[in-house]
């Protein structure tokens, strides 16, 4: 399936995973392949013919990064503002759709410096909402569990205070995430055990070893929050047309 996970850092020690789905309805429409298999479906009066699989479509790293940066304001607004007590999301009935401004901007806390592009909001279930984003990208942002989101918000706001232990239940992913960071480069350093693997490197690297600086890595632990935001990509911005 075409799901991939984009990880964004909310600050230097907290990360939030976003699950990104690519909706192929609009993205790909030109692949036609021959039929592989046919069988009657007995419980149905149909003759089913199955088509060969299409290759999954993913966003590339660059695309993913540009998308995440494009929706930076929106994401931060979702995490920090939308779950706040001043936004009355629960007034929406299940299945009801409203323009986003009517929900958000009417509050006294409307801040014009937030540059968001969310057009409408739909309530899907008890704790589920769908936001429709349209700017360069066209996205559907699903908030799968606003309960968790509001916990995450509290955690982000009060993490440094003494109280933080009380709120962070259920918002950490079981999956642990470490970030690879490059340490400073110093050739004269006494070799530590970290350098040993250099010996295991393939032979062709050996001659260049004296030129190659010794690099130490450190692995930094991050607080990984649970995924509760899904993003369905409906449309990707066009690349700049080649200048003639």
């Amino acid at each position: 399936m075409a799901i991939s996970v984009a990880t964004v850092a909310l600050d230097e020690r907290t990360t939030l995973p976003l699950r990104v789905f690519v909706n192929r309805r609009k993205l790909a429409s030109n692949v036609k392949e021959s039929t592989l298999f046919e069988t009657p479906l007995l419980s149905n009066n149909s003759l089913v013919s199955l088509k060969s699989p299409k290759t999954a479509i993913y966003l590339s790293n660059t695309d993913m990064e540009s998308m995440c940066n494009a929706i930076k304001d929106d994401l931060l607004m979702i995490v920090y503002e939308l779950m706040g007590p001043q936004v009355a999301l629960s007034k929406l009935r299940v299945g009801q759709e409203k323009s986003f401004d009517s929900i958000y901007s009417t509050t006294e806390y409307n801040h014009e410096f937030i540059d968001h592009h969310i057009e409408s909001i739909t309530r899907l279930g008890k704790f589920k909402y769908k936001l429709w984003y349209k700017n360069n990208w066209e996205l559907e942002i699903f908030l799968n569990n606003t309960l968790k989101l509001s916990r995450i918000r509290r955690y982000m706001l009060f993490r440094d205070s003494i109280l933080h232990n009380a709120v962070n239940e259920g918002i950490h992913d079981k999956k642990q995430l470490l970030l690879m960071r490059q340490d400073s480069v110093d050739i004269s350093k006494v070799p530590t055990e970290n350098d040993l693997p250099l010996e295991d490197l393939p032979l062709e690297d050996l001659p260049s070893e004296d030129i190659k600086p010794e690099v130490n890595f450190r692995y930094k632990r991050m607080v990984n929050l649970v995924p509760c935001i899904d993003i369905h990509v409906l449309e990707r911005p066009r690349r700049h047309k080649r200048q003639v």
């Binding site: 990880t7 790293n61 993913m64 999956k175 960071r181």
Partner: peptide, 13 residues
């Protein structure tokens, strides 16, 4: 504070 984390830098356990 917000930043995108490139996938290559991640180590997932």
């Amino acid at each position: 504070c917000f930043s995108y984390i490139p996938r290559g830098d991640q180590i997932i356990v």
